[in-house]
Amino acid sequence: MRWCTAAGVTGALLVALAQPAAAEVVVDQEEVRAEAMAMAPDPEYLADAEPAARAVAAEYGIPASVTAGQSVLESGWGRSALAVNHRNYFGFKCTSAGPGPIAVDCAEYPTTECQPECAPTVATFRVYESMTDSFRDYGRLITTSPYYADALPHADDPDRFVTEVAKRYATDPRYAEKVIALMVQHDLYRLDSPE
């Protein structure tokens, strides 16, 4: 599944904390990712994400630098509608079976999906009680889905790990390059060392 940029949604992507989780907010992951790359770093977000990323590393063996980098890219430094309203820092959707074992609910949002033609649709996204739960679900998904099995042997090489994950995580051919750029620019590799 590929996310496309829908015209006229730029201003709707990043929302204030006070905004309700209304269906009129459009989820456009390509736009969120573009905004994340252009934004100034948010030390407060990184301070909140660091313990969650380290916990994923301890529980699932995923490099904390990769988890933090992907969360920055997928949530626009924690400012996307999904992150603000539903603590969903990775853009995960619900499945036909529901929210899964960690998420607590599903929330509908208008979005645009391309398969291969782009069209507006409504999708259900996972709702979490906390940032920690969102990060744990990321760790669970990456380590249990056969889509990402090729990444797991490279846990000691964050760049290679995210390169393997990116092959199935996103259709953007520059996805891994973007995550690696965030890891380099914001010294996220330091999260892979013991505290």
Results as ranks from 00 to 15, higher is better:
Q185S: 15
A38H: 01
R2F: 12
Y138I: 03
S130K: 06
P43Q: 05
T121F: 10
C94Q: 11
F92M: 08
L14P: 13
P20F: 09
Y60S: 07
S80R: 05
P194F: 09
D192T: 01
D133V: 03
L182F: 09
R160L: 14
E31C: 07
S145T: 12
T112G: 09
L46C: 00
Y148D: 02
D187E: 11
R2I: 10
D156K: 15
P158R: 08
S193F: 15
P41D: 05
A47W: 02
G11R: 03
A18K: 15
R2C: 13
E129R: 14
L82G: 00
A49N: 02
Y189T: 07
M1R: 08
D172A: 06
A6E: 13
A166K: 09
E44A: 15
V72K: 04
H186I: 06
G91H: 01
T132K: 07
V122C: 10
I62E: 05
V72Y: 09
Y128D: 04
D105G: 01
H186M: 12
D133E: 11
V84K: 12
A166E: 11
A36D: 04
A107G: 03
V15Q: 02
A40M: 12
A34K: 11
D156T: 15
D150L: 11
Y128K: 01
Y128S: 01
D157Y: 10
A55Q: 13
G69S: 01
E50I: 06
T10G: 14
N88E: 11
G69Q: 02
M1I: 11
D150V: 08
P120C: 03
Y109L: 10
E177H: 13
V27P: 01
G11Q: 03
Y169A: 04
A16D: 15
V165N: 01
G98R: 08
L73G: 01
S71E: 05
L17C: 14
R174E: 15
L152R: 14
S130C: 06
A123H: 07
I102S: 01
Q19V: 12
F92N: 03
A6Q: 08
A23P: 08
R54V: 03
H86P: 01
H154P: 09
N85Q: 14
N85G: 12
Q70C: 04
F161V: 09
G11H: 06
S134L: 06
A23F: 14
C106N: 03
Y45R: 06
P153V: 05
G98Y: 05
R87D: 12
V84C: 11
A36Y: 00
E129S: 15
L46H: 02
A166N: 09
